[in-house]
Simulated scan of single mutants.
Amino acid sequence: MSKLRVGVIGAGSWAVAAHLPALAARPDDVDFVGVCRRGDDALRRVKERFGFRIASEDYRDVLAAGVDVVVVASPTAHHHEHATAALLAGAHVLCEKPFTLTSQQAWDVVQTAERANRQLLLSFGWNYAPMVERARKLLCAGGIGAVEQISVTMSSQTRELLADTGGYPDASPDSAPEPATWTDPAISGGGYGQAQLSHALALAFGLTGARARGAFALMSSPLSAAVELHDAICLSLEGGGICSVAGASSFVGADGNKHHLAVEAVGSDGQFMIDVFRERVSLFRPATGQADLPVAPGEGAYDGARAANCLIDLASGRRTDNPAPGELGARTVEALELAYRSAASGAFETSS
């Protein structure tokens, strides 16, 4: 099989720290064709480090070079344009989270992927983790029935990043994140909700199939931050269930910079729990009792390489299942869009 031609739109800090090293580790599978980012010096360094043939500040030059797979890791405000163009150019696409600024944009990209018959993946790293994939199989074999209540809690070391007082511990040391990417609401769409709760919602919604229909949200912006650092969100779900979501920007150095993330769900036929920090997965059903999945130490840690590897495996036909498809990304955008509307209005907001 010939190598897959790779294009990257937005080779910023996270792409350099996670996606590009993962792809570079597969020299028999990929050919680095084109890369796009702002800044001549940074662009040159990425081109030379990974061996791209073409480097340009115009993403259209990357697509025109001919690509089979594209990583879209540009700022969120550009995801709709960049992902749509890549799909229409015939590429399978891995899009960074948060997916898009609006749910209308998100569903438009999903429909474009369907019409183009191309794979669309979101960079929700935990959804690709082996412990999560085993949890998904456990739920498919015997689920919890109609979802009645979901509790989602998350904290991660984004206090300094979102307040623009420091960096992010998982960022590439060679390419610091552009502050505006995270702290300008016009570019990011918001703070902790966009940056981190998009991950948490993707984990919860991916495992339970939930979809938000309404939200009441409180958001806090200490340190005079331009975006929120902390979130408290109540969601109403399609089918009558409810969901609580708590998100906090913790200090760099806390708990060895390991993310706290847990999802608990109660349904008509049982209840389920996954905790990536404590590395535990359990399912209880009255008819069969409790099942606890074995989880190896360290398995709950975030691995940024998995999404790019899945992109290559899907595009090459080695894999057929997509753990973080575009429609899941669109459901996370719907929930966050409602939450930000509610925080701004002070009222319970519902989808139209």
Rank of each mutant, 00 (worst) to 15 (best):
K258F: 00
L94I: 11
A226W: 01
V33L: 02
F124G: 07
G214D: 07
P130H: 07
G317P: 11
P169Q: 09
A226I: 01
T288I: 05
R38Q: 11
D28W: 00
E114L: 11
V245S: 06
F272L: 11
G326F: 04
A180F: 01
D164S: 07
G326D: 05
D275W: 02
F284P: 05
R118P: 04
R115G: 03
P222S: 05
S123I: 01
S250H: 10
D29S: 15
D255F: 04
F50D: 13
Q104Y: 02
L122W: 03
F348P: 08
V295C: 11
K258M: 04
R5D: 06
A296G: 07
A195H: 12
D28T: 13
A15W: 00
M1Q: 15
A171K: 10
G190E: 00
R285Y: 01
S155G: 04
A89Y: 02
A324T: 12
T350C: 12
A210W: 09
T181L: 01
S198M: 02
G270L: 05
N127I: 00
I54R: 14
A225F: 05
G256T: 04
Y128N: 08
M219S: 14
A64C: 01
Y59N: 13
I187W: 04
A180N: 13
A24S: 14
I274T: 04
C243G: 03
S282V: 06
P98G: 04
G270N: 10
A11R: 07
F52W: 06
G7C: 04
K3R: 15
H260F: 04
H82D: 13
A24Y: 12
I144P: 12
V152P: 09
R280V: 02
F251L: 15
P286T: 09
L120M: 09
T350D: 01
A24L: 07
I242G: 11
D292C: 09
S221W: 00
G34M: 04
A83T: 12
Q290W: 05
I9H: 11
V245H: 09
G214I: 02
N257I: 02
L328D: 05
D255I: 02
S123Y: 10
G39R: 00
C36F: 00
L162I: 10
W107I: 04
G39V: 03
W107M: 11
E57Q: 12
A301D: 12
A195Y: 06
A186R: 15
A225R: 01
A296K: 12
R136L: 02
H79I: 00
E327G: 09
D269V: 09
G239A: 06
A301Q: 09
C310D: 15
V266A: 15
A135T: 13
L201C: 08
P169C: 00
G239N: 09
G145F: 09
L338V: 06
W182Y: 15
Q149C: 02
L63M: 03
G191T: 06
R159S: 10
G90Y: 06
P297N: 00
E96C: 14
V132K: 14
P177L: 01
F284A: 12
F348R: 15
E279V: 05
E327A: 13
L283I: 08
E279N: 11
P169A: 03
E264Y: 07
G145C: 08
G51H: 13
I233W: 13
S352W: 11
A65T: 07
P222M: 03
T320A: 15
E238H: 12
S224R: 14
A202K: 13
G66H: 05
L43N: 14
V263K: 08
A113F: 10
G241S: 08
Q194T: 05
P27Q: 02
V263S: 08
S342F: 04
A330F: 01
